[in-house]
Amino acid sequence: MADIEFLDTSSEPRGDTLYHPVTVGYETKVATQGVSVRYGEKVALKDVTMDIPSRAVTACIGPSGCGKSTFLRAINRMNDTIDNAQVSGSVLIDGEEVNDRSVDPVVLRARVGMVFQKPNPFPKTIYENVAYGPKIHGLAGDRDQLDGIVETSLKKAGLWDEVADRLTHPGTSLSGGQQQRLVIARAIAVNPEVILMDEPCSALDPIATARIEELIDELRENYTLIIVTHSMAQAARVSQMTAFFHLGALVEYGPTEEIFTNPRDQRTQDYITGRFG
């Protein structure tokens, strides 16, 4: 969307958030405006306004319980599945309001894929895991087309070479890292525009983590990625933009380099230097 320019954060600070100026020319993919989420009485996220660039990786960091996962789930309306969750504010994807009544969450979630903290393949075959999304959305006309989608998705997720000869094996028989890549392939298979990753590497060993990070870097070319991570180093390695959340508020947001080398808020500085969190 050419007409949506990336938020110029240099001019005026809004609310309590500190925005760093962005020098690279990005297009805005996702824009949130004063998003708050409450679980019953408890406020999990308050007044988050941020623009998320297209074809880049945006990392959300912050201590446990700071609302970064809640923020992620606000983008594809996964909070709808929680009974007492109340979402206010607006989330725009390509300028289109996702919280609008007319938007079916099913369509939204086809456009915004999600990868969870713990690998959660379906207890079905590898093939069925990847083919499930395209099947329910009717993306493949026939079997050959479906086979093609499965193959490209697995290739994009860097898993094809490892599983090409055992597509009928159960997805749960793979190792943790492979399962997480399978889940990514499953998300890619419906060809989403945005991929949300909620701590995708927290259950993996360093080698598997490195593979996923590599994959994230490759996926950046075609998708908008938003990842939640507890690893400062990972945020620094894979992301172009970083948002620091604390106690449900977005404290500081800007290019990763800026946040890590020149944090303006004391809390951000304390967190990234490891003084708390």
Binding site: M78, G133, I136, V190
Partner: peptide, 26 residues
């Protein structure tokens, strides 16, 4: 496990599809 429901919803299955395709067989 709720992760199965989330997985199904995450790829855009409707609530009914998530239940009948994934939760019920388990």
């Amino acid at each position: 496990p709720p992760s199965i429901r989330e997985a199904a919803l995450g790829v855009g299955a409707s609530k009914t599809q998530a239940v009948f395709h994934h939760v019920l067989p388990l």
